[in-house]
Each structure stands twice: as C-alpha cells, then as structure tokens.
C-alpha cells in the first residue's frame, strides 16, 4: 500500500486528500474528501492527471489583439506544452462567438479549442 497526500483543486474548498494505491489489485482509495468529485480527482491525479488549458490566440479586426480560448475539456497534463505550440500558430478573424470552435482535436487530445468570449 502506497499513499500520497494531495490537495483537491476541483473546488476552492481545497480538501487535503490522502490517496492510497494498492499495487497488487491496482485499486485506489481516497480519504479526506468532502464530496465525490474529490474522490474522482484524487484517483485521476495519480493515474492520469489532466488540466484545462486556457490561453489566447491572435485575432484580427476586433477592438482587442487577443481572443481568450480554452480546451473544452481537460487534457493530459503532459500534453499542455504541445497544445500551447498549436495555440501559438492560430490566427482568427472577427467576429467570433463565445463557444465557437477555434481548433478541432488540438494536439491529438480529442479536445477542441473554443473561444471563451464573443468579439467583434
């Protein structure tokens, strides 16, 4: 039995979790979580950590020079910098609507990059 202390970041409560890993059976158990989302997070964080990437892309024809974007779901933590490389290449032209897909299947993660505000 192997146990790791982590802080749940799903919500601002920031519960202190203890995630135990039983390598024989391959199962995880979580304690210290105040809700079920914390359990899910604890297990994911040890088996396959993910994050939503938020950034900006160049926009032309709008009152600002950058359009904020995000991945529409969390992607593997290890893929973040690869995503950023693709985000850096994107150029869009106004008008754009909030939620509009800017880039499909970014860096092969299965997640889409979407606009997080309307502009122009």
């Amino acid at each position: 039995m192997n146990s790791t202390q982590i802080i749940c970041i799903v919500c601002p409560m920031g519960c202190h979790l203890e995630v135990a890993h039983d390598s024989a059976s391959g199962t995880y158990s979580v304690s210290g979580n105040k809700c079920s989302r914390g359990k899910e997070y604890g297990i994911n964080e040890l088996s396959n950590p993910t994050r939503v990437v938020t950034s900006t892309v160049v926009i032309e024809g709008a009152h600002l020079k950058r359009l904020p974007v995000k991945t529409n779901r969390p992607i593997a933590k290890g893929k973040m910098f690869e995503c950023m490389k693709e985000i850096d290449k994107v150029r869009v032209i106004a008008p754009v609507k909030m939620g509009q897909i800017i880039l499909k299947d970014i860096a092969g993660t299965g997640a889409d990059l979407i606009a997080t505000r309307s502009m122009g």
Binding site: T54, P68, K70, M98, T116, R117, S118
Partner: peptide
C-alpha cells in the same frame, strides 16, 4: 468557467 465567460 473562465472570467470572460462568466462576464458574458
């Protein structure tokens, strides 16, 4: 949500 989405 992100800040701009919350605002919008």
């Amino acid at each position: 949500l992100t800040g701009p989405e919350y605002a919008e």
